[in-house]
């Protein structure tokens, strides 16, 4: 009997394989979105609802929109070239080798790693964690959003100048 969480892991991995291997970029972007949904469900299962909501709205939503708009932008211009597909067809084989190798070598390593777990401050809520201990991270988020806005704007500014 496969448990719920294991099922999710397998589904996420399959979605990742589909995203990487599919020939059509649009299918790739949609598989990526499905993968994000799977990760969000895993986060819910790990009792991390806020992170899951972010994952669902930002990664499954916003990033997918970005990818699809890029795909449509490029498709119009017929920018796609024939890639050598054999490399991608070989991926499941390599993934299988890594999966089996990981089962033999990786699994005991991870179990040994788990022995070093240190139970930290569990009482703190997410809100107080973010606003009291991780205040600098919020500043970092502001900085990276500022950088992102400037980067995106700089491209569109050039576009306007060209017109």
């Amino acid at each position: 009997m496969i448990e719920y969480r294991e099922f999710l892991y397998v589904a996420v991995t399959l979605c990742a394989l589909a995203a990487v291997m599919s020939k059509n970029m649009l299918t790739s972007a949609i598989s990526l979105a499905a993968m994000s949904v799977g990760v969000a469900l895993i986060l819910f299962d790990f009792n991390a609802p806020w992170a899951a909501v972010f994952e669902l709205s930002v990664c499954a939503g916003l990033i997918t929109v970005l990818f699809i708009s890029a795909v449509s932008l490029l498709r119009k211009e017929e920018a796609f070239f024939a890639e050598d597909r054999t490399r991608f067809r070989l991926l499941p084989l390599f993934a299988l080798i890594v999966a089996i190798g990981g089962w033999i070598a990786g699994w005991p390593f991870f179990e040994a790693l788990a022995d070093y777990a240190r139970f930290g401050a569990r009482g703190q809520s997410l809100g107080s964690m973010l606003w009291e201990t991780r205040r600098m991270d919020l500043l970092g988020q502001i900085a990276i959003l500022a950088a992102g806005v400037l980067v995106i704007n700089s491209v569109f500014a050039v576009k306007k100048a060209e017109k």
Binding site: R134, M136, D137, G140, Q141, A143, I144, A147, V151
Partner: peptide, 22 residues
């Protein structure tokens, strides 16, 4: 400046990412 004044590995990482994007 954020990276060099951070006293925390994760904050250091965030500012390094900001730096990379910029």
């Amino acid at each position: 400046c954020g990276a060099v004044t951070s006293t925390d590995f994760f904050t250091l990482f965030i500012f390094v990412e900001v730096l990379a994007v910029a």
